[in-house]
């Protein structure tokens, strides 16, 4: 009973361990155990970390949407939308394509931004519903965008008028070069139509929304084009 309470010396030599030398505090058994575990850990990390980086890499890799010609400037009027097909992803055929609705800037309905810039002369509306990403279509008679999945309705400028969507329809930067209208990267807008870095559908941008649903490093708006981050 008495030896159980006995405090062992930290020196192996004092503990009568065979082969101990003076000043040694780590037993060979403990040293081998630690070495074995560290070696195993290093070996596992050597394949796990690169593999995880490989799988998660695309999340942090910025994607650059190329500018694409969608037509001549005279193809688009200010009062209705013209559907055009663009490539969101190259090389995967039809599944990489998406429809955008394009029209000329209309001072009667579009609010003039404080800093009116070159990207705003034509309005290109994304067809991805801001509820969960189904494809919306523009109904000319009603001047509304309608989503077939869960009944989302947007007005002429893409603001939510009814149903479950959480923010107005996303837009694309547009610019004019040599009489052609070009469509560039996508950006998201809040209910005041301020530009934000692109978010996925279902992620609100009003109030705390922009902080609860941060933009991801792989898709950014063009720097210095208004709005918040």
């Amino acid at each position: 009973m008495a030896d159980r309470k006995e405090i062992k010396s930290k020196y192996t030599a004092d503990r009568q361990i065979p082969g101990a030398f003076e000043g040694e505090t780590v037993t060979r058994r403990a040293f081998m155990t630690t070495t074995g575990q560290v070696a195993g850990g290093v070996a596992a990390a050597a394949f796990l970390l690169p593999a995880l980086g490989f799988a998660f890499g695309p999340v942090f890799e910025e994607y650059h949407q190329p500018w694409q010609v969608v037509g001549n400037t005279e193809d688009f009027g200010p009062d209705t939308y013209v559907p055009r097909t663009i490539n969101l992803t190259e090389g995967i055929g039809d599944s990489g394509k998406s429809t955008v609705y394009v029209r000329k800037f209309n001072p009667r309905v579009d609010q003039v931004m404080k800093k009116q810039d070159e990207y705003n002369n034509y309005i290109a509306i994304s067809t991805s519903c801001m509820h969960l990403g189904c494809p919306v279509h523009y109904v000319n008679a009603a001047q509304r965008f309608i989503c077939p999945c869960h009944g989302g309705v947007y007005d002429f400028v893409g603001k939510v008028q009814g149903g479950p969507p959480v923010r107005p329809l996303d837009r694309f930067y547009t610019r004019v070069a040599n009489g052609k209208v070009l469509i560039g990267p996508r950006f998201s807008v809040n209910s005041e139509l301020q530009r934000f870095s692109p978010r996925d559908p279902g992620e609100p941008l009003d109030g705390v929304g922009q902080y609860l649903y941060p933009s991801t490093p792989d898709l950014r708006k063009i720097p210095g084009t208004g709005g918040s981050q």
Binding site: A55, F56, P58, V59, E61, Y63, L88, T89, G91, I92, S95, G96, P198, R199, D200, E203, Y213, P214, S215, T216, D218, L219
Partner: peptide, 15 residues
């Protein structure tokens, strides 16, 4: 948002 990008392997439904 990060989970989405992980699932798709990028910002859009890609190759």
């Amino acid at each position: 948002p990060y989970l989405n990008d992980f699932l798709r392997g990028g910002p859009y439904f890609g190759a």
